[in-house]
Write a protein that binds this DNA or RNA. Structure first.
Lengths: 262, 262
DNA sequence: CTGGTGTGTTTTGCATATTAAACATCATTA
DNA sequence: TAATGATGTTTAATATGCAAAACACACCAG
């Protein structure tokens, strides 16, 4: 009996668990000992030993200063950046968003939908004041931010409904949608307008402008956004200045991807 | 017979090969089919099939638009950035190097020695003109650049000699050291001066200022550098302006790491 | 010193992953 | 159409990874 999950016949558990070790070490605040890893994985120490042994030999993990404790090694960086360099959109967007940051003075980002999350691919921090905690590689729940609504516009109504069903709603601020209906309303609004301007939706006191990026067939594949504290935005110029600048950048990127519209 | 490498008893090949698949996909220009992966790995298709199956199920790889071809998935990004976020020096240096970039107008970087390579941890591009190809995650040979000489100052003479022995010397420019002696001379010079100013050493027409970052015990653990095309640097002000600014930033970072000196 | 509890490491019988080989598709070519 | 060669997939015999248990060493408390 037992037989727990009955993993597919083709599954290679050694690989699965090794990658999980990497993720656990990635999430850890401090280096972990072999035993800690074994416990966190729900594995025997002997199995963990073999995984750690292999990973260390491959230099994907390394011992920390304190002996018998392990951290991620630099080799995982290569993987992460190999991924980034393979996303042509990131290459294209980087200089455009840098200019946008310089023109507007607030932080600029490019993000895509990855599963149910918003994933930040490019991020340029405002040159002064407030530092956003959104950096390349950051993930946030898509349902809870202007960027998310903008990106979710890519989904058709049915897919969107299914997406909404599986969310666990957490009210980040008083404006966060907390049920499928209010979310779909937001998304449809974003789709109709072609942009989202938000004020304190994701974080109290934080505002943002989001505009979709489209590919050659006109589908939404990414989202450009400005974000910053209310104090950094001149709210009166939101529609007259920040929005058009952002739209211009988004269009610039879309064109570079073969988008024919305007 | 055969028995090829007689891998250690504790080695788990499934993990080893899975990670190798990720690296191969990371290095690939375009998505790869199952068979291509198998060939690149020197494996049977059936084995590659199981690795790909597992990686795909874990979302470390995904099928490209073209069916039956695979690319890295977004989940590898998490690993890479988890590593970065675990390097406190990167967190500390980021805003300092952003200011340095803004004050000097040229690109700024923080790098560490990783094995025999220089690894860039933080990178802020100049806001105009020339865009350097050194970004976070980039690796370069340590022996061939000002940053490298600066970082190699951390090694004692014996270790440095051993390091020098195993390099394969490639003359990137006419100034690149091509033998152990000229390298060690460079490194000792850097150690004595406490900085390196270079002109066209790594790339023709590219200049750079590099200053070491020290930890609480005074050891060199990283290196701050400015880099840009000669046209971006005002060479007359190299020692009067760029160098002191860089030293100031490096000291700032060193202090934040507990360095007591000056 | 003794017993206890924590390590990391090694062993070994059993369960399971692995791969050669067969199979099923799909193109292309004769 | 049949032959060919490439692909992705499945199978089954065998090679191998796995975890329980034993081991060795450390640390700490009494």
């Amino acid at each position: 009996m037992a037989k727990a999950t009955n993993h597919d016949v083709y599954f290679v558990p050694g690989l699965h668990r090794g990658l999980k070790v990497l993720e656990i070490l990635g999430a850890a605040e401090t280096p972990m000992s072999l035993s800690e890893i074994a416990r966190a994985m729900g594995l025997s120490r002997s199995s963990a030993f073999r995984l750690v042994y292999t990973l260390r030999q491959m230099e994907f993990i390394r011992e920390a200063e304190q002996a018998n404790a392990f951290t991620l090694g630099a080799r995982v960086l290569n993987l992460g950046f190999a991924y980034l360099n393979q996303q042509p959109i990131a290459e294209i967007a980087r200089p455009i968003l840098a200019s946008l940051r310089d023109e507007t003075g607030v932080s600029t980002h490019l993000s895509v939908l990855e599963g149910d999350d918003v994933l930040y691919l490019v991020s340029h921090q405002a040159r002064s004041g407030y530092v956003s905690n959104m950096r390349t590689g950051t993930r946030t729940q898509a349902y809870a931010s202007a960027i998310g609504w903008c990106l979710l516009g890519a989904k058709d109504d049915n897919t969107l409904a299914v997406f909404a069903q599986r969310q666990s709603w957490h009210p980040f601020t008083e404006h966060t949608p907390t049920d499928p209906d209010s979310l779909t309303a937001r998304v449809k609004q974003a789709r109709d307008d072609g942009f989202v301007i938000s004020r304190g939706f994701r974080e109290p006191g934080g505002s943002s402008v989001a505009v979709p990026v489209r590919n050659n067939s006109g589908a939404i594949i990414a989202c450009v956004n400005l974000s910053g504290p209310d104090s950094g935005f001149d709210f009166d110029r939101m529609e007259s200045f920040y929005l058009p600048k952002t739209q211009e950048a988004a269009l610039h990127i879309s064109r570079a991807l073969g988008y024919q519209g305007s």
